[in-house]
Design a protein around this nucleic acid. Sequence first.
DNA 1: GATAAGTTTCATCGATTTTTGAATGTTTTA
DNA 2: TAAAACATTCAAAAATCGATGAAACTTATC
Lengths: 165, 165
Amino acid sequence: MNGKISDGRQLSDLEREMIELFVRMADVLNLPRSVGEIYGILFVSPGPLCLDDCRLRLNISKGSTSQGLKILRSFGAIRTVYIPGDRKDYYMAETSLRKIASGFASEQIQPHVASGKDRLFRIRELLADESEAEREHWEEKIELLENWQKKAGTTLPVILKLIST
Amino acid sequence: MNGKISDGRQLSDLEREMIELFVRMADVLNLPRSVGEIYGILFVSPGPLCLDDCRLRLNISKGSTSQGLKILRSFGAIRTVYIPGDRKDYYMAETSLRKIASGFASEQIQPHVASGKDRLFRIRELLADESEAEREHWEEKIELLENWQKKAGTTLPVILKLIST
DNA sequence: GATAAGTTTCATCGATTTTTGAATGTTTTA
DNA sequence: TAAAACATTCAAAAATCGATGAAACTTATC
């Protein structure tokens, strides 16, 4: 046992309670539990942690930890810290809500919005094959959905503006 | 076979494609697939449908259909239609994005925000037992989270306002 | 260039969630 | 109040999703 504070010692009540908070957030955002745990351990830590630090303190597997760090990196919820003379990658939690939210929006939400747009386009194509009467029936429904689509597209940026104030 | 348009006949390409759209939305919102399907079949239908209409056209079980309708009712995504001289309950899709979103927010999101608030309060209590030095270390993190909390609370209502315009 | 350190990938396992359908509950009608 | 018409519940089955850890991969060190 060396002197590193991050080795596999038990988590304190305070730490556990806070990590649980992030696990719940992950749940709401439809992210794996381990992603919440990893963000949590980085958030409560006074300094950067490496993959092994995280997994030892959380008692989770190497695979989950690697995968979780990748997800958190993908939307900028953590940042990589370079520590001279150490080959390991170190991470710390990004605490700017604006940065995290905008990363999440563009990486996890936008793709869904985009694929919905595609599908709506395909629906318009299918509609061309239908009879006049059928087209009439569908037209209003499709317009409704296009309106939803548009709102999703315009609302997201506004939310981000709001959060950053 | 009677003359009802809603009996178990095959779905058209157009119908299937549109229902799929709602299944994807359900997925993003972390709701069961069947909930998306049921909303979808109600959305594409020209008139109200009863439980059996839905399940026959979608080929899903009675249990799923009952459960799905209950969930959709719980946040106001569908409305119940009374048809004189018929004992069955009929449903139609609510198409106001504002109504659906605000129902979803208050039924599915708010409870999470509230329980997060509770947890943060419990964390403050735990903090009282810590030494002066420890308290110092945690104070800024807790303040950060309280700030997030506050933003979640104020942003949600604003989003709903935005959607309704 | 062989070894060691660190990370990622992926097949499999396990846990959780959803679906099913039979049983149960409720309301209406005759 | 018996029977019929519907809706709901719930235990069991099926499907889904995340976690695991061994193997593969990459990069650095000697």
